[in-house]
Structures are given as structure tokens and as C-alpha cells.
Design a protein around this nucleic acid. Structure first.
Length: 145
DNA sequence: GCCAACGTTGGC
DNA sequence: GCCAACGTTGGC
């Protein structure tokens, strides 16, 4: 079964446009740098073909587009090993699917009663969160898709 | 720049 | 295993 996700990135570090440019060249982006177990566990659950919202945190604070998982969870090449020499941190690889004609802001999401339970709001510090099918469809609609 | 919400660390 | 202290994220 297909699942939906939301992944945050600070656009001055890596933006949706950066992902679109990479995808246009036929490359995928390794979503490295996640150092939180709940976020990692979510990435471990992702399957190739799952779709995720790209959220710009700090700057913009809006959902700007859709991406897809193209490689399932694998060791994060930027992560250090733990004391036992084990890889603790993992990441998936993603490519862009399409931008939203109109970005959906965090303020709009918070102002929408149907989205009151979305993890983006409920677990505000989690950088990789789950999105229900109903939430996904509504946010796509709000974004003009 | 501040602060709330959480996660992590380390002493006991 | 508990909990205080501290660090980080991210919105405001």
C-alpha cells in the first residue's frame, strides 16, 4: 500500500528547486543528515514509489511540492558510526515529482480544521512525518493540484 | 532573539 | 531506572 510523508528542509541549505534541478539531470538526492530516531524509523518504513511533501522550514514555512522515494532506506553516508562501529543513521533517496502551483503555508494548514491532527503541527520538531491519505489529498487541493 | 517542546546525557 | 541539566529544532 502506498504511503504519504512530509519531509522538511531549510531552503537555504537544500530547496525544492535544488531537487527539481537534480531530478532534471537524472540524479536523485540522498536525504542525509537526519539524526532523530523517530524520523529515521519513518524513513525505514518508506517504500519506493511512496510520495512525500517537500516542506520549507524556517524560511517560507510552506509545502512547496511533491517528491517520490526512489531508493529505500540505506546507511547515511554522512553519518559517523557509533561506539560499536554500527551504522545508526539511514536515509532514502528522492526525486521531485511536481511543484505546487500555489505553496501551502503552515499558517493555512493550522487554520484548516481538517488538518488539526497532522503530524507537521502535532509533532512540530519531527523532520520526517507521516501524512494520512485524507490530509494528502486536501493539501494537494489547497496547493492547486 | 526568545521560548516551547522534545530528545539526549549523565549522575545517582 | 529516574530525573535534572542541557542541547536542538523550529515557529514566532
Amino acid at each position: 500500500m502506498m504511503a504519504y510523508w512530509l519531509m522538511k528542509s531549510e531552503p537555504d541549505v537544500f530547496s525544492f528547486d535544488d531537487l527539481v534541478a537534480k531530478t532534471a539531470k537524472g540524479e536523485a538526492e540522498e536525504w542525509h543528515g537526519v539524526r532523530n530516531y523517530a524520523a529515521r524509523n519513518n524513513m525505514r518504513e518508506m517504500k519506493v514509489g511512496d510520495e512525500a511533501f517537500f516542506y520549507h522550514s524556517n524560511i517560507g514555512k510552506d509545502v512547496v511540492g511533491i517528491m517520490k522515494i526512489v531508493v529505500p532506506a540505506h546507511p547515511d553516508s554522512t553519518a559517523e558510526l557509533n561506539a560499536k562501529g554500527e551504522v545508526v543513521w539511514e536515509c532514502v533517496d528522492v526525486q521531485s515529482v511536481k511543484p505546487f502551483p500555489r505553496p501551502v503555508s503552515l499558517a493555512e494548514i493550522k487554520a484548516t480544521p481538517e488538518l488539526a491532527d497532522i503530524e507537521l503541527v502535532r509533532l512540530s520538531r519531527l523532520s520526517v512525518s507521516k501524512v494520512s491519505e485524507a490530509e494528502w489529498k486536501l493539501i494537494c487541493k489547497m496547493g492547486g493540484l
